[in-house]
Design a binder for these strands. Structure first.
Length: 843
RNA sequence: GGGCGGUUAGCUCAGCUGGUCAGAGCGCCUGCCUUACAAGCAGGAGGUCCCCGGUUCGAGCCCGGGACCGCCCACCA
């Protein structure tokens, strides 16, 4: 196709699929496992859930990582973007349960083995969805080596880690209070619990003293748990109860005698200052119970129903039913002293949204303190750096207060614990133990346990693969802040423990993209914006540019304007290229971009600065400015000025082509599709832009003098245009002028052309004056405008200038300023004053 | 209860270690089909930089206090 056949609009929907195909076929995303991790560049993608569909968070993070990956690939590094998906225990299990439900059956009915088979089948069918969606974004992950956290090799790594930690004594089994999620019927970790405010009823209940001399009143929002009470606690210094400590009360409805104990945990000022202790159903009571050796009576089971221990009358009821029954029974005996509405925060399951039922359960735990120390040190001493830095402090706060991690889950989908039991015996090992009678632990591991191994398990650990030394440690981990504890911290701990090295040296915590109105983007709220629809509408480049331009060091609202800016930029580049290529015609120009004019030196200088700036911004994760800086260069310098400036010149082509090629190169990491599409039409551009090198820095091309000269010339054009507008010069009319300003040289001609002026030398008396840097443009007699309007305009300008002069003089007349401000600042002010006076005089 | 962000033009946001920092995009107004682009080009209007104190020759920028919005952590029944 000849350049003039190139359509005037860039059509992403037509271009993108073809370009994507070429990239995928080229193999550019797959590096050979050679060299060392120090020479190479690698990023491990936060593995999306297999059940997932691309959301804005993925799209932003994918854009961020792809910019980094493409940039480093262009720098000539062997670059690997480790790709894969997470088996996502609960989420995936639920998905398939739903499917079974639609078939009229249940997980229990089909049985574990069949269920797991069904999940695998589901994964085969739908698991690649999100991978394809990443491709549409243009992400150059290593698609040829897709990992899955439940693959055989990966599972081996998980088992290996579990066994080693067990042998080290860091993993153990215990009967302990856990967060029971009735929704998923599994224990969950502290991190998967979220506090939500609810309004409960606070019941004040009288417990009669065993002595018969009165009562102690306690308050609770969960009266049903009283069936499991083991004691009453008061503060040791609470005089009201001092003489009662050691005595007993009679537990209403049950009749059990409860000791009155003293414990510092109790807040005397809260309620009556007496606290009922239910060790099996409240985390605090659990602690107190263990400290005092109290009985742990489980009255609510894992099914959410009252156990036999709750007594005949209540056993089998749901906890809620039991509450009503207990309250009714207490009322009957007139033991309820008061009730009041009580708003407070209570734990809910992050997954199922259901209220957590704290209970004592036999689970597997991991002690974290021993691993946390070195992992915290790695951040303290800078081996791992967070960007923005404040997240490092957040990480450290958590690490310094770390608690044991409940790692077992009562699910079917996941890594089954490598643990076998026979009677009282427990065996932990990679393979099943010898001998008969062993049964394997049913539970599976918390999904985050396997995710914690991601950076090295994906590379084949514990096998000594070639990929491991080539790409581990990785360079950057890019993620959202909500998984800093769940994932990032644990990767650092596990990485250090099992490889002796930090898994990545930088953690970039990107923005959270909110809905347009500032609410959270969420499916249930209907506030989500589908990145794929946005790509359909505006193109992948526009979405990438938009997201990067939006991103910040804080949360941001989704901005349609930024996406539009990206779309506009793509189109602008497309048309600028058209302009250049139409001149290039068949001629293949590879010649050095020899500058033949000031504007050539200027654009080469500006290009040089943009290259350096873009590189440093990418390296410092300042994607916002990298994207917008690129936009400014392309619009504000290349198109608005340079292209206009050289129109009519026939010797600018080498520079034009050079600037176009390099601009495509530096824009490519941000807007890869359109730049690749243009590249295919550029004479002398071989192969894929995605495989081309980053435009080499040419510091010698920075030209201060040319920048200054052009800045003045541009300012002059703008001054002339503004003047024309303000005095109402007839549209398009050429205005005769005498150029009375220094320092323009050859640029005066272009200023005149762009300002639609006719340069003359005649000695006629000027009828108007337009101040420009270095002097003025004197307007000669003409009928193109009304001189009165010009006079008014001059007055306005004079007033403004006089004001500025007064301000500058005031500043310089202030001895405080002159004496204390740095000499350069004072000098700058003096120069400014001179300039202003000059402009004023020129009027 | 503790901690962290934020509050700048009608809207969404930039403003580095205090001195051309009062900006961009969108929107708005005016004028243009200028042979790359009318989803374009040119010009323009628009802001007590949340409030109150303080430091300084000089403060969106630093310090103290306050208001409001958002997030994280947290075992007060």
């Amino acid at each position: 196709m000849t350049p003039s056949d190139i359509p005037t609009r860039y059509e992403p929907t037509e271009a993108e699929p073809q370009i994507l195909e070429r990239w995928l076929e080229s193999g550019l995303h797959h590096p050979e496992p050679k060299g060392t991790a120090a020479e190479n560049y690698s990023i491990a993608i936060p593995p999306p859930n297999v059940t997932g569909a691309l959301h804005m968070g993925h799209a932003l993070n994918g854009s961020v990582q792809d910019v980094l990956v493409r940039y480093h690939r262009a720098l000539g590094k062997r670059t690997k973007w480790i790709l894969g998906t997470d088996h996502a225990g609960i989420a995936t299990q639920k998905q398939v349960e739903k499917l079974l439900e639609s078939e009229g059956t249940t997980r229990e009915e089909v049985g574990r083995e069949e269920f797991v088979r069904r999940v695998w089948k589901w994964r085969e069918q739908y698991g690649s969805t999100i991978i394809e969606q990443f491709q549409r974004l243009g992400a150059t992950c290593d698609y040829s080596e897709e990992r899955f956290t439940l693959d055989d090799g990966y599972a081996k790594a998980v088992a290996e880690v579990f066994v080693r930690l067990y042998e080290k004594g860091l993993i153990y089994r215990d009967n302990y209070m856990v967060n029971w999620d009735p929704g998923s019927r599994s224990a969950i970790s502290d991190l998967e619990v979220e506090e939500k405010e609810v309004v409960d009823t606070l019941y004040s209940i009288r417990y009669p003293l065993a002595s018969g001399n009165g009562n102690i009143t306690v308050a609770t929002v969960r009266p049903e748990t009283m069936l499991g009470d083991s004691a009453i606690a008061v503060h040791p210094d609470d005089e009201r109860y001092a003489r009662l400590v050691g005595e007993s009360v009679v537990l209403p409805l049950v009749g059990r005698r409860l000791k009155i104990i003293a414990d510092h945990y109790v807040k005397p000022e809260f309620g009556t200052g007496a606290l009922k202790i239910t060790p099996a159903h409240d985390p605090n009571d659990f602690e107190i119970g263990r400290a005092h050796g109290l009985d742990e009576l489980t009255v609510i089971g894992e099914d959410g129903r009252m156990t036999a221990a709750a007594g005949e009358e209540f056993a089998g009821l749901t906890a809620l039913e039991a509450r009503e029954a207990v309250v009714a029974a207490l009322r009957e005996q007139d033991l309820i002293e008061a009730t009041e509405p009580y708003p407070h925060v209570v734990p809910h399951s992050h997954r199922s949204r259901e209220r957590i039922e704290p209970l004592i359960s036999l689970q597997w735990f991991m002690r974290m303190d021993e691993l946390a120390g070195p992992a915290a040190d790695a951040v303290r001493d800078g081996r791992v750096r967070f960007a923005p830095g404040r997240w490092g402090r957040v990480y450290l706060d958590w690490m310094d207060n770390i608690r044991p991690w409940c790692v077992s889950r009562q699910l079917w989908w996941g890594h089954q614990l490598p643990v076998w039991y026979r009677g009282e015996e427990t065996y932990v090992g990679i393979d099943a133990p010898e001998g008969d009678g062993w049964t394997r632990e049913d539970d599976v591991l918390d999904t985050w346990f396997s995710s914690a191994l991601w950076p090295f398990a994906t590379l084949g650990w514990p096998e000594e693969t070639a990929a491991l030394p080539a790409f581990y440690p990785t360079d950057v981990l890019s993620t959202a802040r909500d998984i800093i504890f769940l994932w990032v911290a644990r990767m650092i701990m596990m990485g250090l423990e099992f490889t002796g090295e930090v898994p990545f040296s930088e953690v970039y915590v990107h923005s959270v993209i909110q809905a347009r109105d500032g609410r959270r983007m969420s499916k249930s709220l209907g506030t989500g914006i589908d990145p794929l629809e946005e790509i359909d509408r505006h193109g992948a480049d526009a979405v990438r540019f938009g997201l990067l331009a939006m991103s910040s060091t804080q949360d941001v609202r989704y901005s349609d304007e930024k996406v539009h800016q990206g779309q506009d930029l793509a189109n602008k580049l497309w048309n600028a290229s058209r302009f250049v290529l139409m001149q290039a015609s068949e001629k293949e120009v590879r010649a050095d971009p020899t500058p033949r004019a000031v504007e050539d030196r200027w654009i080469l200088s500006r290009l040089e600065r943009t290259k350096a700036l873009t590189a440093s911004r990418i390296e410092s994760f300042d994607f916002h400015h990298a994207a917008l800086g690129l936009y400014d260069f392309v619009y504000g310098e290349l198109c608005d000025w340079y292209l206009e400036w050289v129109k009519g010149r026939d010797d600018a082509l080498p520079v034009l082509l050079h600037v176009l090629r390099e601009t495509l190169g530096l824009a490519h990491p941000i807007i890869p599709f359109v730049t690749e599409a243009i590249w295919q039409n550029v004479p002398g551009a071989d192969g894929l832009l995605a495989e081309a090198t980053w435009p080499e820095a040419q510091p010698g091309r920075v030209d201060e003098a040319a920048e200054k000269a052009m800045a003045d010339a541009i300012a002059a054009v703008q001054a002339v245009r503004a003047w024309r507008e303000s005095v109402g010069v007839r549209t398009g009319a050429r205005v005769p002028v005498r150029f009375d300003a220094d320092g323009y040289g050859e640029l005066a001609g272009a200023v005149a052309r762009l300002g639609r002026l006719d340069l003359g030398e005649g000695g006629a008396e000027p009828v108007a004056t337009v101040a420009v840097p270095g002097g003025a443009v004197l307007v000669l007699p003409t009928d193109a405008f009304d001189p009165n309007a010009a006079a008014r305009r001059v007055e306005e300008v004079r007033k403004r200038l006089q004001g500025e002069v007064a301000r500058a003089e005031g500043k310089l007349g202030n001895s405080g300023f002159v004496d204390k401000a740095p000499a350069a600042v004072v000098e700058g002010e003096r120069e400014k004053l001179e300039r202003l006076k000059g402009e004023l005089a020129a009027l």
